[in-house]
């Protein structure tokens, strides 16, 4: 598995988008913070899946929130995708993961397309668009290019935009990423697992579903016109949890005929049947982040009976890519060693 060439290619492609990436750290979502808490499934969740963490008992969890970039420099206040990786501890060293991000869709529907996208997104020297060019844009009723963040020298934004103009599948993700902003807190953002999973119910019925975490305190981003602050998310979370726990609702949409089961670039509209699957309560930020968080290797395909992966090629590729990445940085536990 670690020599799966596609997985290696994927990790290299992602790394190439972050020239200042430090060996031994995660290739993306490099800066993060681990939190502990528990998950309690709703009273209806068990009607949809036999998976252990949806049976209603309190399940301990570890969550890692992160900024999207693979750069080692923390810029909390920059407009960026955030991650929320959740590990449900099912007992006896058994666990399952749910990996989500603040984008509601991915950039590419296939491995090949993603490799192309990564090439397109390689950072190029970024300069402020000239005022004359901006005036021209305005005369064309065209959105001017966003200004770089203070101190930002290079960015993949222009490459991504050019790619999205050529590939409709990337448009929504690029468009949303361009205006995503920064959350006031890691627990004031909604996170989406993006891929389709297949749940198996106690009646053996298999359903295509997608998951999202919704913060019960509500979604809130920072003022985009104010100068961005580089480091605040970690301290905010520590302070907040000392006062009171933070909670998220796990929301599940059920797919229907015509939905893109295997295509993570297409969101499912809000009109799908929406099931409330449970509540996540986050209580503490462990002191030893290295042990409780940074060493953990999450994997979107670390599942448990009652929940399976779909035919989504990106989801399937992430399984090995995460493993390659784990080996490179020396993270814990290979979930598929037995297989």
């Amino acid at each position: 598995m670690p020599d799966n060439p596609i997985a290696v290619q994927l990790v290299d492609a992602v790394l190439s988008d972050f020239p200042d990436h430090q060996p031994g750290t995660r290739p993306v979502h490099t800066i993060g913070i681990g939190v502990q808490g528990y998950f309690e499934a709703s009273e209806v969740a068990r009607n949809y899946t036999i998976a252990a963490h949806f049976q209603g008992q309190r399940v301990p969890v570890t969550v890692r929130f992160s900024n999207g970039t693979g750069s080692p420099v923390e810029h909390d206040g920059w407009s960026d995708v955030r991650g929320m990786a959740t590990r449900f501890h099912l007992g006896d060293d058994v666990a399952t993961d749910l990996i989500a991000m603040t984008l509601a869709e991915f950039f590419a529907p296939s491995v090949d397309a993603f490799l192309q996208f990564s090439r397109a997104a390689r950072p190029a020297r970024q300069q402020r668009e000239s005022p004359w060019q901006k005036i021209l844009d305005m005369l064309c009723l065209k959105q001017p290019l966003p200004d770089p963040m203070p101190g930002q020298m290079a960015s993949g934004a222009a490459g991504m935009l050019a790619f999205a103009n050529q590939h409709r599948f990337a448009q929504m993700a690029v468009f949303q990423a361009g205006s995503i902003g920064a959350p006031v807190s890691y627990v004031r953002a909604a996170y989406h697992a993006v891929h389709t999973f297949i749940l198996t119910g106690p009646d053996h019925v298999r359903r295509p579903v997608r998951f999202s975490w919704e913060p019960i305190a509500g979604v809130r981003t920072t003022d985009p016109t104010a100068p961005p602050v580089d480091c605040y998310l970690h301290q905010e979370l520590k302070d907040r949890l000392q006062r009171q726990p933070a909670t998220f609702r796990l929301v599940m949409s059920i797919g229907e005929i015509g939905d893109a089961y295997a295509d993570p670039t297409r969101q499912w509209p809000g009109k799908r049947c929406r099931v409330f699957m449970g509540t996540l309560t986050l209580t503490t930020v462990p002191e030893d982040q290295e042990i409780f968080c940074e060493k953990i290797s999450f994997n979107p395909c670390r599942l448990t009976p009652g929940i399976d992966i779909s035919d989504d090629p990106i989801l399937q590729a992430r399984r090995d890519a995460y493993e390659v990445s784990r080996l490179r940085r020396g993270g814990q536990s290979c979930p598929f060693a037995a297989g």
Binding site: L145, N165, R168, Q171
Partner: peptide
């Protein structure tokens, strides 16, 4: 989905300009 507007206006499979969405 905001970008679906581009597809409604331009039936061709590509050749959009995201910055022209406004």
């Amino acid at each position: 989905l905001a970008t679906d507007l581009l597809a409604q206006h331009n039936a061709a499979a590509s050749g959009d300009d995201l910055r022209l969405l406004p």
